[in-house]
Each structure stands twice: as structure tokens, then as C-alpha cells.
Computed example of a mutant assay.
Amino acid sequence: MAVDDNRLVRRGLHPLHGILLAGTIPLFLGGLAGDLAYSSSYQIEWSNFASWLLAGGLVFGGLALLWAIIDLVRADRRGGALLLYMLLLLATWILGFVNSLIHAKDAWASMPMGLVLSVIVLLLALASTWIGFARFGVGGGR
């Protein structure tokens, strides 16, 4: 008796796409940690660290967003989950960019809005990474 295996084989995230996506988490988390350290110590260098970590998170997030847009254009039927994933990445990048503009101000002027935006950006990055890995996985079929 022959076994017919008609399971749907889903393409996962490319490993480089996974690295770019996962790289946003420690960078945005470090930015939040820098903001928290600045808000408790008022040492300007913590705000500078947060600014640089946000810039790194935007680079990684922007490349992951570009990859997600290309995947969305090339997608055949995965439009719903892929669209949600791309929109979360887009929201993360836009709010991260606004957060970088807030951090470009004087360190004292960037608080409390910079801290609030850092929390929101980190939560969006966590959500997009969760959806990216849970829904699509990494590598070949599952």
C-alpha cells in the first residue's frame, strides 16, 4: 500500500533573513537598557549608547523589512501572515526611526518619550520576530 503524503511544505525564512530579524532584539533591548540606565543615573553616555544601539537595530530591521517586502511580492498564497509580518516590521522600523529622532535631541529632552518609544519598539520587534520564526520557521520545509 502506497502512502500519499500531501502535506503542505512551507518555505521557511532564509537563514540570513533569520539572523537579521533576530538581530533586532538585542539591539533594541540594549537601547531600552541604555534609556533605563540614563533615567536612573543621568549620565549622558547612556543616552549615546542607546542612540547607537537604536541605529544598529534600524539597520538590521530595515534589511529584514526589505527582505520581507521582497518575499511578499514573490509570495504565491501566504499573503495574510506574510502581510502581517511585514506590517509589524514596518511599524517597528517607523517607530524606531522616530525614536532615533527623539534621541537625537539633547539627552535631557529625549526623556520620557525616548524611554516610552524604546519600550514600544522593543515590543513590536519581539512580536515581529515571534511571528517570523513561529509562522515561517528557518530553512527548508517543516
Rank of each mutant, 00 (worst) to 15 (best):
M1R: 09
M1F: 09
A2G: 14
A2V: 13
D5N: 12
N6D: 15
R7E: 15
V9L: 14
R10K: 05
R10E: 07
G12P: 06
H14C: 04
H14F: 05
P15I: 06
L16F: 11
L16Y: 09
H17E: 04
G18E: 07
L21W: 00
A22N: 02
G23I: 00
T24N: 07
T24H: 02
T24G: 11
L27Y: 00
F28K: 02
F28C: 06
A33Q: 03
G34R: 01
D35S: 08
A37F: 08
Y38T: 05
S41V: 05
Y42W: 09
Q43Y: 14
Q43H: 12
Q43M: 14
E45C: 13
E45N: 04
W46R: 14
S47I: 05
S47Y: 01
S47V: 07
N48S: 14
F49K: 14
F49H: 09
A50P: 03
W52S: 12
L53C: 05
L53H: 00
A55W: 03
G56K: 01
G61T: 01
G61Y: 10
G62M: 00
L63F: 06
L65P: 04
L65S: 09
A68C: 06
A68W: 00
A68G: 09
I69A: 12
I69S: 11
D71N: 11
D71H: 07
L72I: 10
R74Y: 00
R74E: 04
D76Y: 08
D76I: 12
D76A: 15
G79A: 12
L82P: 06
L83P: 00
L84I: 13
L84P: 02
L87I: 05
L87E: 03
L88C: 04
L88E: 01
L89A: 15
L90T: 07
A91D: 10
A91M: 04
T92H: 08
T92M: 15
W93K: 02
W93V: 15
W93N: 07
W93Q: 13
G96W: 08
G96Y: 03
N99D: 14
N99I: 04
N99H: 08
I102H: 11
H103I: 02
A104Y: 06
A104D: 14
K105A: 15
D106I: 03
A107N: 05
A107Y: 09
W108T: 12
W108P: 08
M111Y: 06
P112I: 05
G114H: 06
S118Q: 05
V119H: 02
V119A: 10
V121P: 04
L123D: 07
L123C: 10
L126Y: 01
A127I: 05
T129F: 04
T129G: 10
W130F: 12
G132H: 00
V138R: 11
G140D: 04
R142M: 13
